[in-house]
Design a protein around this nucleic acid. Structure first.
Lengths: 194, 194, 194, 194
DNA sequence: GATGAATGAGATTTCATTCAT
DNA sequence: TATGAATGAAATCTCATTCAT
């Protein structure tokens, strides 16, 4: 018997769609409720307030994101392979969900400082994966032993993020996933031994 | 006789301060007017609307930014040296103006999609410099001939931007300019020949 | 076998506590239900709507109030003695139940005009006792024969009510019951023969 | 040249009318604005928020109230005469302004605890006049030297207030001002020497 | 009788922009 | 040019009540 999808997820998915299609500032609670097929007030049975929807949205989606990436890289031996899977998965997961891509790359960044600080907390889980890949790479001598982990992390995340944002800004016209190889190569060279 | 500073610039400088100190969403036109020492209505003699203030702000400040960077790299011979100056200047110019750093890295990103598209237009001038450095590097064989210019640009800009944002988010506690060397090294390795 | 306390009274007592502790405007039906240990919907099996809870509360509590006062004054001979018992009992009954005092003196007065008109209906039972005491006093010539019953009633009720309200507003810090004698003296002089 | 009536008073007068005619809970800011002939937003140029309108209303009206009463009693010699003027003026001022009477006796009492505490602050000015009349009466031996000032004040204010409220509740059908004499007599007897 | 998840109407306040002076 | 008082649209959230189980 198919279990009824909990309203909690129903609302989060509705929020992604509404924000992606209307923009952060035009994503009224009433629109989200309508999209989710519930009454306005029902939203507040599952979320404390509007901001809570957005944080939960990010946590929920980023949680799945991190989990999938961890599954993929667990089976890989080298840091280079792990990094490739991370980039490839990052690109493909967003390429598969255009709405989510718009929300994470453009709309959620319009939130205020407080919200962004809380989003950054969630983001730490992702950055920790990156750090551990880099650390592994240094230990196996795949990467330069002089490599500053924080800088390397900023390079990798900054490059990935900038690439995805460019792709979204260009209306997702080119094949994002196809870039994984080249981006990976750049990163590996940057991290690599001289 | 010293010319009276045009109100236009007076208002832009006021906007930078008000946005940096109050945040994008609390930077009301009336606050900017007060900081600039003019009446609310006066703002509209110099700017079409609030969005116009923000775009003008970015144009004005980015214009100076680009000009200074171009001056610095004009005297350098190699692509590597040019890239170093760009990174160093990028870091030092923002390190010198904390208000501006907050505005460009955090606050202006809360603007809506339309405004950010127009900001991206302004940003192109900066990215063009980057492209020409990379192109030069490829022509002189400093950089790999297989290097994808767009990807390299995204790596360099993404890394610089992520580094500055991290610095601002950490309340500008560490020495940003001191990172120029390490960041440059990473970029050069990423762009370099195998 | 002790009969199970009817839910009806259970809910009324819960309402007194919730209103006293949270204030009239924060006394949601759901809070009253929780305090009473029943489900929200159960409330509506015993009361027509929220207003009905409040009126019933006042009826129930005022009924006991009137009954006790009538018992006390029945044994007294003179109007003066009857009036003393009324004042003393009025003060002592509220001094014994701080929650109820807050509800009747402060919170229930925030109700709208309609509700207060209906509360006034209930109050008439009390005012009738007052009227009959005054009438008795006039007949026995304890009180001035020129005494206007309605005015005398307003004086007595107004004074008692104002005194209790002052006591509640001052966080019930002084001994309300101890004032019965002085208040009684004032009233007797006001009502008395020249 | 007739000076334009300040918007501040215009809005307060509008608030009295709207609250009297619609009841406290249906007196939306937009209704008050419409009645005052200004835009909704204009209200907030003169008042911090809705509660501020109500407090200002009470202060403004009570200020006039107190001033007029003080003028009247200043010319009187005995405490009894002063008390008579106070009662007579209290009744007549409210009898002249039915809207205001409804607002002070019924509607404003529906406000929350905070607001009522602030209203009580304003009321103190009135109660101080009462206290000084009673004090004077005691000093001139018009009143009993054993008279408790606080109790006497509660009797007088309680009786006046209860009388006015009864009058308002009865749709102002009887002649309130005509009661001044009888009420005064009651009070004087209550306060008087045995 | 009892439950409690779901409903949906309704109002305060902000702030970019205008325009008469 | 410069002013600043006035405008008015727009959206979050609460909570009394219902009804399927």
């Amino acid at each position: 018997m198919k279990q009824k999808r909990p309203k909690y997820l129903q609302i989060i998915d509705a929020a992604v769609i509404v924000i992606a299609e209307n923009g952060y500032h035009h994503a009224q609670v009433s629109k989200i409720a309508k999209q989710a097929g519930v009454a306005d007030g029902t939203i507040y049975l599952y979320f404390k307030n509007k901001e809570d929807i957005l944080i939960s949205l990010f946590q929920e989606k980023m949680g799945v994101f991190i989990e999938k990436i961890q599954q993929e890289i667990a089976g890989k031996d080298t840091a280079a392979e792990k990094l490739y899977m991370l980039i490839e998965k990052h690109f493909s997961l967003l390429a598969e969900d255009h709405h989510l891509a718009i929300v994470t790359q453009l709309e959620l960044r319009q939130s205020n400082k407080d919200l962004r600080l809380r989003i950054n907390e969630v983001l730490k889980g992702y950055l920790n994966i990156l750090d551990s890949i880099i650390q592994t790479g240094k230990e196996t001598s795949e990467f330069s032993e002089a490599l500053d982990i924080r800088l390397a992390r900023q390079m990798i995340f900054g490059t990935i993020d900038e690439t995805v944002t460019t792709w979204v800004m260009n209306d997702q016209k080119f094949d994002l996933t196809a870039l994984a190889g080249s981006v990976h190569e750049l990163m590996i060279k940057g991290c690599g031994r001289v």
